[in-house]
Design a protein around this nucleic acid. Structure first.
Length: 121
DNA sequence: CTTCTGACGAAAT
DNA sequence: CATTTCGCCAGAA
């Protein structure tokens, strides 16, 4: 079974996964937590909140399970629209259209994540 | 060492 | 639909 590498905190593994989300697609706090394993959606939120300038993580591509933006008063919506993502009249993103499928099995394997996620996704 | 504090989610009520 | 509850974090005070 996959184990965390020495020196890799849960936050660092969360950032690794979020960096895999391509422009024009979004993931959710819960989905990232399921991929990383060993943490929950709340932890992913904490990790995003702990980002510091220069960390190069596409935080704008992480939205909540309802397809809405959780961080009010930011330019998150503008950033996403600039990538081609559309919002409906209720400020929601259609996850069926813009949701990310998640990393492929090879990537999970190469980075020490549980590949069972791939089959349970 | 303890307490507090944040970008969440699913289920039960 | 609105609330409540509780769950594998990290850094600052």
């Amino acid at each position: 079974m996959p184990e965390r590498q020495e020196g890799e905190s849960v936050f660092e593994r969360i950032y690794m996964v979020v960096r895999q989300v391509p422009p024009g697609r979004v993931t959710t706090y819960g989905q990232v937590a399921r991929i990383v394993g060993g943490c929950d959606a709340r932890t992913v939120g904490y990790a995003m909140g702990a980002l510091k300038p220069g960390m190069d993580v596409p935080w704008q591509r992480v939205v909540n399970s309802q397809g809405k933006i959780s961080l009010a008063g930011s330019d998150q919506r503008q950033r996403l629209e600039a990538e081609g993502i559309e919002f409906d009249a209720r400020e929601r993103i259609d996850l069926k259209r813009f949701g990310w499928d998640g990393p492929d099995e090879a990537w999970l394997e190469a980075h020490g994540f549980d590949t069972m996620w791939f089959w349970n996704r």
